[in-house]
Simulated scan of single mutants.
Amino acid sequence: MLTIKRVSLDIPRGRRILAVSDIHGHVHFLKKVLERAGFCKDDELIIDGDIIEKGPYSLETLRYVMELDKKPNVHVISGNVDSWQLELIGSCEPERTRALAEFIRTAKKRWGGSLFLDFCEEMGIGHPQSEAETAAAREKVIVHGQAELKFLSELPSIVEAGNFIFVHSGLPERWEEMDGQEATPVLKFDDFRNRSGSFDRCVVAGHWPVCLYRHEVAEFNPFFDRNKNIISIDGGCGLKRDGQLNCLIIPDAEGTMEEVSWTSYGGFPEMTAVDSQQERKARISVQYTDNRVELLPGQSPGAGLVRLRHLTTDTVLVVPEDYLYERDGTLRCDDFCDYHMEVKAGERVELVETGAMGSLIKKNGVSSWYHGRLKPV
């Protein structure tokens, strides 16, 4: 069990702080966004948790972060996924073995891999197919991955630097008195911005994808709550089909939120819009916190499309068929917003996907459906 451990940094005036979170096994995204931010030895880098899982290269990402952490100007914080995998791999309790076996059964299919499976592949062990095989493989993983697991187990959960506090998911009340207590309250504080009070210092948190704080559009840029003094930076990398990895740029630890900027990387190809499109505001935004739907009978809306009713709002909508999935015996819809942004002919956009609904594009961190033609830049 990880306990809350705080680290306080003494950063000279005028020295930049870069902060990223929720890399989720996307080491190539991390390298790209740090390149865009111009990261160098004269900066401080804070990696704000969730290094691994829900992405294709967990072990490679973890080892890259471990190499970065050897530098005196790099500081890594634990995230809930990092802590959770550490517990699953390190525990011999039957329920943990069962949870690990269930997780790795879906991880390869859904995200392309997991830390545990990466270790297995490196050792030449086939993917475990049962709880017994998982338990046997775990004994070998614990030995083989000793350095990596030790690194995860020793990570702090809060880093303080001047006027800024960095924590993976959020700060509960009286957090200053929680040193040495179980770390879950700061590793998994869902919907932190809406459930917290305000802070004297700026709190930088990840964990909760920023698009969940917005309902009119699907936007993945950092969310600045100036009333509460909170910056949320999880751009949905690896979790959302149109997500990105954000890098916050703080010019001075003694500065304010108003001076903070950011850059991002999403890995999507750049395209040029051939046709213009007028803005059409969103009628509905389905998010995973409220995504139960039912199929509606009747005429098909088109090849590759399905007609649904969103159970909570009773809204009828049409979505791509591959947005549907089942969880806990209930039909659900992947994150979907029917917003159409204004696009001018000749503008550059990023192409997320093309399908029966048209093209899902991004511009300035905002996603939109687009029904015009695109051509490569």
Rank of each mutant, 00 (worst) to 15 (best):
D335Y: 06
P209H: 05
L295N: 07
I158M: 08
Q244L: 15
S198T: 10
R348E: 15
W262A: 14
E321A: 15
N163S: 11
F39S: 09
S261N: 10
V74C: 11
E95N: 10
H207L: 06
D190Y: 09
I17S: 04
S91C: 05
W84F: 14
R105Y: 02
G236S: 08
R309K: 08
D234Q: 04
H310C: 12
M257T: 08
F189D: 01
G346V: 00
K71Q: 15
G236I: 13
G235I: 03
Y288W: 15
I284T: 05
L324Q: 10
Y57V: 06
R241E: 15
H310F: 04
A273Q: 09
M178S: 03
E182I: 11
F151E: 15
D118F: 06
E342N: 08
G255W: 13
I4A: 06
F223H: 14
F39V: 01
G267R: 00
S359Q: 11
R174P: 00
L171D: 15
G55L: 12
C120D: 13
G38T: 13
A147T: 12
P94Y: 01
L34M: 11
H310T: 04
R292G: 00
K5C: 10
D242H: 14
Q277C: 11
H75M: 11
K41A: 15
D190A: 08
N364R: 14
E176T: 05
L18C: 05
N80W: 09
P94M: 04
L295C: 12
T3Y: 13
G112T: 06
D48H: 01
W175C: 01
F223D: 14
V143C: 11
H207M: 03
E254I: 01
H26T: 07
D48F: 01
I104N: 04
L2G: 01
S261E: 13
T97A: 05
P185G: 03
G304A: 04
H310Y: 05
I249K: 10
Q277M: 12
R241T: 13
A205Q: 11
L295M: 15
H28Y: 10
N194M: 13
